[in-house]
Nucleic acid binder design. Structure first.
Lengths: 131, 131
DNA sequence: TCGTACATGTGTGTTTTACATGTAGGAGCG
DNA sequence: CGCTCCTACATGTAAAACACACATGTACGA
């Protein structure tokens, strides 16, 4: 059952915008995960709030659908834990908080990101070497 | 026509290796592209040689199949240009060199990678802020 | 009552990555 | 020669990650 019509899209890491002109996005794979974990470590937050705060960390908008789906996966993996908040005004919110496992995972991400920084630094140094 | 039997695989960015223990790989999306371009800027190289030299830049082995496929895409996009070398001993090699467009693309990658460095630095600073 | 903001989701196509396999030439050895 | 190993290039394909479209409902103010 097809509900959606196919669309023309341009979703690429690299994209030619003119002769000898390219638009390149260098992004860390799955960067949304550590970003979410970091925000949650600071305080419990619900999905919609994450959606608003994430771009500050990631540099670009995060896909809404994937974020909500992703949070459920994190919960089923024991990384976060959630409960409904019906008290606050407006629609009910599912508020997430980090588990101990989540904190450990964040630490792993941090060290992996540092390693990635070192590699990229090496790349850039070699790039500058003989431009 | 299915030629390969399906296999159980665990290929993930995040992987639990124990209670509270995770293995995380933080990698820049499509990092192989700038790495190839950088090596090619230094001198013309053939695929198999790239395969050996890339890990030094990327920090991990690069998939062979994807690399060869990827080089053909780069060529059809005008980023690199290749010709066969039958002179050297051993099997013929397809030797690649960068085009001007390729050089421009490399420059774009470098600046995108710097931007990514800045974002990740911001993340890590915020992470350290209140550990 | 209609529009808009908040809030949480599902459906599905596209791109990227991981892994398996195919083909072929040359080198060394019994 | 027959055999195996290494070099070199390439294709097949499934899973993972990502992008985009759409569904559903609350609440509030014009």
């Amino acid at each position: 059952m097809r509900r959606h019509r196919p669309r023309r899209r341009i979703v690429r890491v690299r994209r030619r915008v003119g002769p000898g002109e390219f638009e390149v996005r260098a992004r860390v794979e799955r960067f949304a995960e550590p970003a979410v974990l970091l925000l949650l470590r600071e305080r419990p937050v619900h999905g919609y709030e994450l959606l608003e705060q994430l771009p500050e960390l990631t540099g670009e908008r995060v896909d809404m659908g994937n974020l909500y789906r992703f949070l459920r996966v994190l919960e089923s993996d024991g990384i976060v834990r959630s409960e409904w908040d019906d008290q606050a005004p407006g629609p009910s919110k599912r508020v997430y908080e980090l588990t101990d496992e989540g904190r450990a995972l964040l630490d792993q991400w941090a060290s992996a990101l540092r390693a990635s920084q070192t590699r990229t630094e090496g790349f850039l140094a070699r790039y500058e070497e003989r431009r």
